[in-house]
């Protein structure tokens, strides 16, 4: 294998591609499992947005914390949540990471610094800032990352969070996945300001990037995370992404222009990275094998989840208080 001849950027891209592809394949499977009724409730897929968590998490350790959103499967998987426990949770099983009590919108794994997904839009942002406060008190150089969508930026707690993070110099990177749609409505119809101006108001660094190119995004995220760690000044990173599926799985998306839906294929960070890897000389067969390995891992995790026990009611009822 020509591994030794590969450049550092190519090796980096291959790693990011693997993270993105794994998220993509897991979410495709979730889509199918939701459609056939194996997964109940609501799920919100991040297909098309995988580059953001892949790039951000590349620069985080398990001691750094993230608060994730309702569209947070990719954010969870990139942070390192155990796939068996993740899929079992999606199916509401006892072996789920949250013992089947949370599901897709309320998934957490404290062992890898994942504070929790949130069913409340913007709900996780101030909690992550509180985690940043804990990091500051700890003095170990860890940081917190609140992920949020453009739909969260009209929420009051987001603005309060920016203020207190700046006022107290909290080590916090605010990461916005801006897909242009706050649920079923255009971002432009919901928010009159801009994150850039807000960052200026609160004296924070602000960067905008099209997240189609995961390698460029990773470079930028790496620089910003390093700066947050070093200076303990909060910053905002706004990533332009494309939501390929509906707000929720099953959403007919009648509110979305057909023209936009037809162009989604050109806005795919996974295929963008694939093309760059091929151009860099990575053999198709290697990428096919990578995909096969990921699918095999998912097959095994799905099988164990489907075989897992349902949770006991008495045990859940005993878990209301610590």
């Amino acid at each position: 294998m020509p591994t030794l001849k590969r450049s550092a950027p190519t090796r980096l891209l291959l790693g990011l591609y693997r993270t993105m592809l794994r998220i993509r394949r897991v979410e495709e499977r979730l889509s199918a499992l939701f459609a056939d009724g194996t997964i109940p409730g609501f799920i919100h897929l991040s297909i098309g947005q995988e580059s953001v968590p892949a790039a951000i998490t590349h620069h985080l350790t398990n001691s750094d914390t993230v608060a994730i959103t309702h569209r947070g499967h990719g954010q969870a998987l990139a942070k390192g949540i155990n796939l068996d426990a993740f899929l079992a949770e999606m199916m509401g099983r006892a072996s789920g990471i949250c013992q089947g009590r949370g599901g897709s919108m309320h998934i957490a794994d404290s062992s890898v610094g994942m504070l929790g997904a949130n069913g409340i839009v913007a709900g996780g942002i101030p909690i992550a800032v509180g985690s940043a406060l804990a990091h500051q008190l700890d003095g170990q150089g860890n940081i917190a990352v609140p992920y949020f969508g453009d739909g969260a930026i009209a929420e009051g707690v987001f603005h309060e969070s920016l203020n207190i993070a700046s006022l107290w110099n909290l080590p916090c990177l605010f990461v916005c996945e801006n897909n242009g749609w706050g649920e079923f409505s255009k971002t432009d119809d919901q928010f009159s300001g801009s994150l850039k101006k807000l960052a200026a108001t609160y004296d924070m660094d602000y960067q905008f990037i099209d997240a189609l190119d995961v390698a460029k995004l990773s470079n930028l995220a790496g620089r910003m995370i390093k700066a947050v760690r070093k200076t303990s000044r909060p910053a905002i990173l706004e990533c332009k992404v494309t939501r390929h599926h509906g707000h929720y799985e099953g959403d007919p998306q009648k509110y979305r222009p057909e023209e936009e839906l037809n162009q989604l294929g050109g806005q795919d960070p996974v295929s963008h990275a694939y093309d760059k890897l091929i151009t860099a000389g990575i053999p198709v067969s290697e990428l096919t094998e990578l995909d096969r390995q990921i699918q095999a891992e998912i097959d095994a995790s799905v099988a164990q989840a489907m075989a897992a026990d349902h949770p006991q009611f008495d045990q859940a009822a005993a878990g209301v208080y610590a």
Partner: peptide, 10 residues
């Protein structure tokens, strides 16, 4: 909310 985050942080 910050208190929740700090409490989760120990």
């Amino acid at each position: 909310n910050l208190a929740v985050g700090a409490a989760l942080g120990g």
